[in-house]
Design a protein around this nucleic acid. Structure first.
Lengths: 201, 201
DNA sequence: CGGCGAGTTGAACGTAATCAATTGTCGTGG
DNA sequence: CCACGACAATTGATTACGTTCAACTCGCCG
């Protein structure tokens, strides 16, 4: 019933406003959910990791684009089939409900960040959340202090509602203050977690 | 099984971070969902109207406060009872899932507003959305051009991630430009909907 | 070595925040 | 009915933060 599909980094799986004929499960890789304005500004409204769910069951059209940030692998279902299947499988539906409620909590928490936090607070909050979510993935459990981000500066900016320059400046400053190390473009090492948590507001 | 409860304007039903022992249905009035920082900044992450749902099924603690913005009336359920009941009633669960998915879409759309829109775009978007949501409530169907907001300037600011001063200035400017009328504190009349939609970005 | 894209750094600008004062509105009591 | 007080909203002046525009650096691959 599900179809395995490989997606290359940068490739878009679903387009904002399109009729969304599919839902999917992420097996491998990281994808982003993006909302855009007419004049090209972008806001990333969600980041999807393996075992997470993609698409909009019971809906007409996709409210956002879904694009791979790394090479990825997803298991695709026809939406109508899936809707029917879900309707007749309460246990699946409950699982889906729980996930959706979690996503909603996360989104609302993020709204506070976008609406009320300063640039430095945004970056600090972001690094802490990524440290948590990525270490769930990685080898050891618990939040490890070093991790590799699956995306570049521009994408961090699109998540935080900042420009790439401001994002870069904040990271540079954190490094200067000794709060983090930046061994390579996409690697982050949190030196002083307590200081970071203070900064996050 | 449900218990009717009246709530006075300003009264808080659920506190952020508290164990949330209840869920509820709104019968009458308007409530807000609020997330706060340690230093007192507030962001409204949701506005709840009659027939909408409140609370966090299948969760430990409430991720936000719920406060009445007007006198209100809600139907309260014990959360554990509700969870059990939902688990054994797939139709209810599906309804809840649909609602939650809708809320998630709305929240994500709002993230774009908070992260990427200018003050004037925010206010315009806000007025258009309220025009839609409130006219569903009111007498006639379709979006009517005049409506009464259930909240004051500070609360609009807390929804848009702005200060009260900026919000006020934007409204004044829109009135000066003839796009809206402001017959009283809480009344809005949209004169030029097309212009408003342009402004919304 | 050269060229390209991603990232960093710098300087000037602009938007919204902040601080402060004034106006307006509503409810209460004289 | 009007005067008053309390609170909400508006308006003004100034500041600060993040954006914008531009130049430059770094790492990587041909």
């Amino acid at each position: 019933m599900g179809r395995l599909q490989k997606v290359r980094s940068g490739q878009t799986l679903l387009w904002e406003g399109d009729g969304a004929p599919v839902v999917a499960n992420v097996l491998e890789g990281v994808l982003k959910l993006v909302v855009s304005t007419a004049d090209g500004r972008e806001q990333i409204v969600g980041v999807v990791f393996p075992s997470d769910f993609i698409g909009r069951p019971f809906g007409k059209e996709s409210p956002y684009s879904v694009t791979a940030m790394t090479d990825a692998e997803v298991c695709i279902f026809n939406r109508n089939n899936f809707d029917d299947f879900a309707s007749s499988h309460p246990d699946l539906q409950q699982k889906l409900l729980r996930r959706t409620l979690d996503e909603l909590d996360r989104a609302r928490h993020w709204m506070m960040l976008l609406g009320r936090k300063s640039a430095s607070e945004k970056v600090a909050s972001f690094l802490l959340e990524m440290s948590e979510r990525l270490s769930g993935q990685g080898c050891q459990s618990g939040a490890s202090n070093g991790f590799e981000l699956p995306f570049g500066r521009q994408q961090i900016a699109d998540i935080l509602g900042l420009t790439i320059e401001t994002t870069s400046r904040q990271l540079t400053k954190m490094r200067a203050d000794g709060v983090v190390d930046l061994p390579s473009r996409r690697e982050i090492v949190i030196n002083d977690r307590a200081a970071m948590e203070d900064m996050a507001g």
